[in-house]
Amino acid sequence: MPRPAKGARLGAGPAHERLLLAQLASQLFEHRSIQTTEAKAKRLRPVAERYITFAKRGDLASRRRVMRSIGSKTVVHELFTEIAPLVAERQGGYTRIVKTGFRKGDNAPMAVIELVLEPVTPKRSSRSRTAAATAPAAGSDVPVEETNTIEESAPIEAETETPAAAEVEESAAETASEAPDVEAPAADEPAVPDEKPATTTS
């Protein structure tokens, strides 16, 4: 015995459910967005996206396949000529469901299902992000305006000698003049020790 599909069963049986979903898809393609119950919107989403996938192929077999379910030629023509080019760059996710609250009579949860026709902005992969971060920017060779500015520095004050510093300098000069002049050996000549006088033996 065949098992029913997962989710809410719409209508009295499978045939009625197929007709109901085909009619909802036709209304969705015609008006771009419709309001229905949340259960019907969730069951309509895969059906409508499958029809859009057929429309993106654009061949005659796909058009005839959609015409089996959607009987209106004007809706099918609009799907293949207007909606399919708008979602040509999109890789799935052609519909959007927005919950709108509860119905007044039986408190059923309501939702709006609409087509996503905005242009796609491709996401950059992580590899391209790291490559762009490491590569130098193309506009880095921008000429910088040169400005002729002269920086004025503060005038240097003359150093004033304190009396203690003057006394230290005078004492250093006196000790230098009193010290005997000792010739330092040249750097190239090795230091020779003093020779002892030769002793003569008689």
Score class of each variant (00 low, 15 high):
S69E: 04
K42E: 01
T199Q: 06
A184P: 06
A191M: 13
F29G: 00
P190H: 07
A187R: 03
L28E: 00
P197D: 08
L79H: 00
V144Q: 07
A132V: 01
F29N: 00
R96V: 05
G71V: 14
R65G: 02
A111K: 03
A172V: 13
A164W: 12
L44T: 07
L44R: 00
A164M: 10
R45S: 04
E145V: 08
E174F: 10
S177P: 05
Y51E: 00
T37S: 11
Q35A: 11
T81F: 01
Q23K: 09
R64W: 02
A166D: 09
V87I: 12
T199W: 05
S125R: 06
E17P: 02
L24P: 00
T74C: 06
P109I: 08
L117V: 15
P155L: 07
A191H: 10
I150M: 14
H31A: 13
P136A: 03
L117K: 04
S69Y: 06
E89G: 03
G13V: 08
T175G: 03
R9W: 05
V168G: 11
E183H: 07
D141W: 08
P46R: 04
A55W: 00
E170K: 11
S177E: 15
A173I: 11
D194W: 11
E49H: 01
T199I: 07
S153N: 11
A137G: 08
Q91E: 14
V75I: 15
R129D: 04
F54M: 09
R3F: 05
A172E: 13
V116K: 14
E195W: 02
V47I: 07
K99L: 09
T36G: 03
E30K: 15
G92L: 03
H77I: 05
T149K: 15
A186P: 07
P163K: 15
T53Q: 01
T53N: 00
N148E: 13
T81Y: 01
S153P: 01
E49N: 01
A131P: 01
I113A: 00
A39Y: 02
A55D: 00
